[in-house]
Design a protein around this nucleic acid. Sequence first.
DNA 1: ACTTTACCTCAAGCTAACTTGAGGTTTTAG
DNA 2: CTAAAACCTCAAGTTAGCTTGAGGTAAAGT
Lengths: 151, 151
Amino acid sequence: MEEANWSVGRVAKRCGVKVSTLHYYEQLGLIRSWRNNGNQRRYKAEVLRRISVIKAAQKMGVSLDSIKRAFAGLPDNRTPNKEDWQLLASNWQAELDERINYLIALRDSLDGCIGCGCLSLKNCPIYNPEDMLAELGDGPVLLEKKRQKEN
Amino acid sequence: MEEANWSVGRVAKRCGVKVSTLHYYEQLGLIRSWRNNGNQRRYKAEVLRRISVIKAAQKMGVSLDSIKRAFAGLPDNRTPNKEDWQLLASNWQAELDERINYLIALRDSLDGCIGCGCLSLKNCPIYNPEDMLAELGDGPVLLEKKRQKEN
DNA sequence: ACTTTACCTCAAGCTAACTTGAGGTTTTAG
DNA sequence: CTAAAACCTCAAGTTAGCTTGAGGTAAAGT
């Protein structure tokens, strides 16, 4: 019960996730632990921040895979510190901005459609797949697509 | 090749979806067809609008299940006409508004975090699960939750 | 007529992000 | 010391929204 030494159960409770989720994250390489004599997982307090960053990113619609790559890009694969966090967050924020803009665009064309009751084959911006909305992609996956193009 | 009589392939091409997607939607009861002599699916042009509504709703983050229930709520389970569409769209738009607000709130607290580099256990609005973001729920499922409460 | 598309059904597979369960061990509380 | 609570591993199940494949039929082009 020392401060520096967390069991899965405690971490889970503190972070509001299930133990199985922590197992899963560890399996994916998102968090790390060492084992005590009895083969039970032990964590540094650091893991709490790491999990919080994961959860924050997920709320933004970032995939675990993407988060993993972001972490991997940090020097020494360390848990994000202030500066790291700022960098990650601003990247994800850019993605978030795009998603918000996409949704706003969608909402606005919807506005038009509600006004006009259109959905006529030719004119409706929502009806037609080839228009401006299409260019914006599928929202949450935007950053992914860009990254893949860059490779 | 008459106007009133569409094959799956034609519908798929026109709507920019795969044939298998149409099979799938039919299986879910989202669209309907009848069969010709050779047991092949035939559709009314109506189906195009229905699929467009589905796709538009999906872009807004509405689940197929939710869409199905929305359709089922229409008189006679008909394909949404202008007025129906206006009703559906304004419901979904409300949900969309909430999601946008949620994301904007998230982005803004992120702004703060980028500025302060916080993520201290006590203060950060993103770090703590119990704060205002939590109240807003998980975004895309908002409408679902509400509906379930109402039942 | 013939050949290439297009279509059919049904089952199984896929991805993400987890959860559940079985069978067994370790810690902790009293 | 003992019993309950927490932990362990590994495989399999879950949900959404489709896609893929196998094995076979129908329609369309030439």
